[in-house]
Each structure stands twice: as C-alpha cells, then as structure tokens.
Amino acid sequence: MNRRAIPLGDVALLLLIILFCVFPFYWMVTTSLKTQVVALSTPPVWAFEPTFSNYTTVLFDEKVGASLINSLIVAVCTTALALLLGTPAAFALARFEFRGKRDLWFWFITNRMVSPIVLALPFFLIVRSFKMLDTHIALILIYLTFNLPIVIWICTDQFRSIPKDLDEAAVLDGAGPLRVFWKICLPLAAPGVAVSAIFSFIFSWNELMFALVLTRNAAKTAPAMAVGFMEGYNLPYGKIMATSTLIVIPVVIFALIASKQLVRGLTMGAVK
C-alpha cells in the first residue's frame, strides 16, 4: 500500500468526525467568553470580542471556586482511599489462591452494573440519620462504590502481569507478604495504579446525582453548582458555560493523558 496516497474522501470523513466530536466543546468554551447580551443574540454569533468576565464572576461572586475546591477534595480523598483499600485487595486476588476467589472478583466487578439511584435513596436516609448530610465524607464514602471496583479491576491485571519469580526470590530472602507487596510489586505496578487513580478521579469529579442528593451548600460540588444556575427564566448562559468549562478542562486533560487506557477502563465488567 502506498503510504503517501491517502484518499481524499477518507481525510474528509476523518475531519468531519473530529469536527463532530469537538464542536460542542468549542461551543461551550466560546459561549463562556460571551457577555449575556452576545450569548442571547438571535441568530447565535460566531465572531465576537471575548471577555473573561464570566469566569471572574463565577469564581469570585458565585461560590463556584468553593465548589471546585469541594470537588477536588472529594475526588482526591476518595481516590486515595480507593487506592489504599483496593491495591492490597488486587494484590491478594492476583497472588493468593483461595476458595471463592473468582466469585469475589466477580462481585467487585459487577458493582459497575448497579444503578446509583438504587443506592442513593437508602444512603441518603442513612447519612441523614448520622447527621452527615452536606459533608465531604458522605460523598467520599459513596464514591467508593464505583472507585473501589475500578481500582481493583485494573490493579489485579497489573499485578498479574508482574513475573512471580521476583516475589519468590524475595520470599526466599525472608521477606513477608506485606514487604513483597509494598517494596516489590507496588512500585512495579505503578503504571496500572496511576491509570486506576486517573479513572477514579475522573468518575468522582464528573459525578452529579449523589452530589445533588447528599449536599446542600458546604460540600456542594461543581457539577451540582452548575445545575443550580439552571433555575429561573433568563438563564445566565455565559456563567453556566464558564462553570462547565472549568469542570470539563481538568477531566479532558486527564482523559487525554490516559487516552490509551480509557477504553479499557470503561469496559470494566464486560471483558474478561
């Protein structure tokens, strides 16, 4: 096949696909740079003088800054907790033989299938009775229901790919299982651990429904905040899109970094 001769039709199609994928993103960013008057012009304007006023307004007057910090606290803590609990479990699933191992692994993974609304109702009542509504900790804990499975799933695979000779040599030298895990396997599994951390962060950062149900003010995350702008008749388009852009940018950056593993992360529960 001649490498230089790419059919023009294919090029056009690929460009069309890229355009289709990127256009809403482009529209979000440009709308966030419009004043309310420009944003509410009919027909929509494509060329205009950009302004950052929406960003300064939402960040400093509208508490979006605080909500972004809440999102960050929740996403980072739940990711750290999922790694702390999940990596040893993944190590055990990859290295030890015991009865019911397959079933246990399967149970971890099938959490992916359960609709979060099923958990949201009872979790709300439980959290309420503990007087923990509107706290970070409630979100951090409930997000474990999807973060822990993803960490276990990706890390189990990663630990399995590390040759067993290394552990066996260490065991002969008198190292215990904790030492083998901490000193030998975990550093070697760093790429997988990093990918699972990125996923855990993205899923937690993007989550809306639990945040809507479990937070009011103090712990309100950025997506829940953005939804709050949707009330009333005259929607502040610029502010909504500025908040949206602030939410989406870090996720897109992370997703592009992990783009090679993104598909794998999303297929959890359906691939062996």
């Binding site: 993103f25 979000m28 709308t31 950062w205 993007n206 953005a226 388009y237 592009l256």
Partner: peptide
Amino acid sequence: VIPMATTYAVVGLLGQV
C-alpha cells in the same frame, strides 16, 4: 476522547444552550 470525557451533567447543560 473528548465526548467520552465530558462530564455528563455538562453535556446536559450544553444541550440546553
């Protein structure tokens, strides 16, 4: 990658706009 990574809630807001 961009559509997959976009926060679901933001997709809905974009829909409104």
